[in-house]
Amino acid sequence: MSRLVPHPFLTLGLVLIWLMLTRFSLGHLLLGMLVAVIAGWAMSALQPERPRLRRGSAIPRLLGIVAWDILRSNAAVAWLILTGSRGGTRRSGFLHVPLRLRHPSALAVLAIIVTATPGTAWLEYDQESGVLLLHVFDLVDKAQWLDLIQNRYEARLLEIFE
């Protein structure tokens, strides 16, 4: 089974995408499965190391938290733009965040979270020291933003990925 389908999540995702792009029928299901299985082999040829999930059950909770945060920060940034940055009193700034996360897939997920929430931008990550350089749109309290990245997102990602 693992020889035939080395990347089950990738293969399943590709089948679903194939069915989304076409009408559901038995022919398309078989064709999509064929394409997805071949893509799985190609992927294992490219990348021998695959991401391992430790606790996949924590994923829905993280997704929910991120969706809510994106909604909240959208409203916050939209309000700041509308009010002219609180009459010019808003201060933005750079922020160094030391990360414990080392897994490349987990870092990629963290990059998507940080960029998708308006108000934080991922600028640079140093692999040796594990320090991330962020730019924060409304930097009132540095400790609050550090807490957001390290405890709200990073801790959950550490739990999910091995």
């Binding site: 994106i70 959208n74 940034v77 933005s92 998708a116 929430t117 308006p118 108000g119």
Partner: peptide
């Protein structure tokens, strides 16, 4: 520039 970098994420998220 760094402030403006945040602006397009409104369009790309919600």
């Amino acid at each position: 520039f760094y402030d403006r970098l945040h602006a397009p994420t409104l369009g790309t998220s919600w």
